[in-house]
Structures are given as structure tokens and as C-alpha cells.
Amino acid sequence: MRLGEFSSVHATAKRRIQREGVAAVAPAEQELRELLPQLESDEDRRVAINLINRLSGYAVPPKPPTPLMQEALSVERAATESVGSVDERIAIMAAARRRIFEIADRAPADEAPGIRALTRVLEHLESNLRDPDWPQDSNGS
């Protein structure tokens, strides 16, 4: 077995642990340890053991969003769910992006980039409203 194949199985285990939590760690570790003898070299086995040893760290739940992030997410959600003409929706998206940047300006330095990143979705939606990737049918859907 090549290390790349092992890494693929590891990535699947990692996603399962992130979804299911601590209870999924031991079975994933066991599954991956059973693959170790199939690896081609001692170096590959060393790398694989390091990957296995990191699995428990993926069971830690992500931090809940801060109040500023929640505020920014609320602005983003309202903009993406907006209805109206193309021009109205473009104006809503642009206003929401400005509002999110204002929120990011109030955030601590380590939080601001994540808040600003929310504007990328709005930017893409606005761009697609201006120049659709595919034609809209006559009822606007």
C-alpha cells in the first residue's frame, strides 16, 4: 500500500471523527493501525503512525461563533435569502458586504479575516446576478 492510499483512508476517518466525535476515534485508530504492515517502508509507517496519533484532536468540537461572527452570519444569510429584482438584490448584496466589513472592523485581529471571508459568497452571488452563469427562465428562478 502506498502512503497516498493510506492518507485517503486517514482523511475519511478524520471526517468521520469530526462528524461523530470521540466515540469514532478508537475504531478509526484500530482500522488505520491494521493497515500499517501493508505500507511500503518504515518511513511511510512512521508518517502513518503520526497521522494516527493526531486523530483524537479532530474530535474536539469547533468553537461556537462569537457574537460578532453571529452578527455577520445573520447579515450574510439575510442577503442570500433576499428576494426582489436583479437590481434590488445586487443592491442588497453590496450593502450586506459593506455591513460585514464594518462588523469585521470592530472585531479582534484574529477574528476579522474570518468575518471578512463571508463577503466572498456575496461577491460571487452579486457577480452572478450581473452576469449569470446560466440563463434564467422567464419566472426568475
Rank of each mutant, 00 (worst) to 15 (best):
R2I: 00
E5V: 02
F6V: 06
S8V: 02
V9W: 04
V9H: 11
T12P: 00
T12Y: 07
A13V: 08
K14Q: 13
K14M: 13
R16D: 09
I17K: 09
Q18V: 06
Q18M: 14
E20K: 11
V22A: 13
V22G: 00
A24M: 07
V25E: 02
A26F: 09
A28Q: 08
E29C: 14
E31R: 15
L32G: 07
R33D: 10
L35R: 15
L35T: 11
P37T: 09
Q38H: 08
Q38M: 08
S41K: 03
D42W: 07
D42C: 00
E43C: 00
R45S: 03
R45T: 02
V47I: 15
I49F: 04
N50L: 11
L51I: 00
L55E: 02
L55F: 11
S56C: 00
G57F: 06
G57R: 08
Y58D: 05
V60W: 05
P61L: 04
P61E: 02
P62F: 01
P62V: 02
P62N: 02
K63D: 10
P64K: 12
P64I: 03
P65Y: 12
P65T: 03
P67L: 08
A72F: 13
A72T: 11
L73N: 14
S74V: 01
S74F: 05
R77I: 04
A78G: 04
A79H: 10
T80W: 04
V83Y: 01
S85T: 15
V86N: 01
D87F: 05
E88F: 05
R89A: 00
I90V: 14
A91G: 04
M93E: 09
M93Q: 15
A94Y: 02
A94F: 02
A95D: 13
A95C: 02
A95W: 09
A96T: 11
A96R: 09
R98H: 10
F101G: 00
F101K: 11
E102T: 04
I103R: 06
I103L: 12
D105S: 13
A107Y: 13
A109C: 03
D110P: 05
D110Q: 14
E111P: 13
E111L: 15
P113R: 07
I115W: 12
R116N: 02
R116D: 01
L118V: 09
L118C: 06
L118S: 05
T119M: 03
R120H: 02
R120I: 03
H124G: 01
L125F: 10
E126Q: 15
E126M: 11
E126Y: 06
S127Q: 12
R130D: 01
D131F: 10
P132Q: 01
W134M: 07
P135L: 12
Q136G: 02
Q136W: 14
Q136Y: 13
D137R: 12
D137F: 05
D137T: 03
S138G: 06
N139W: 14
G140W: 09
G140F: 11
S141D: 08
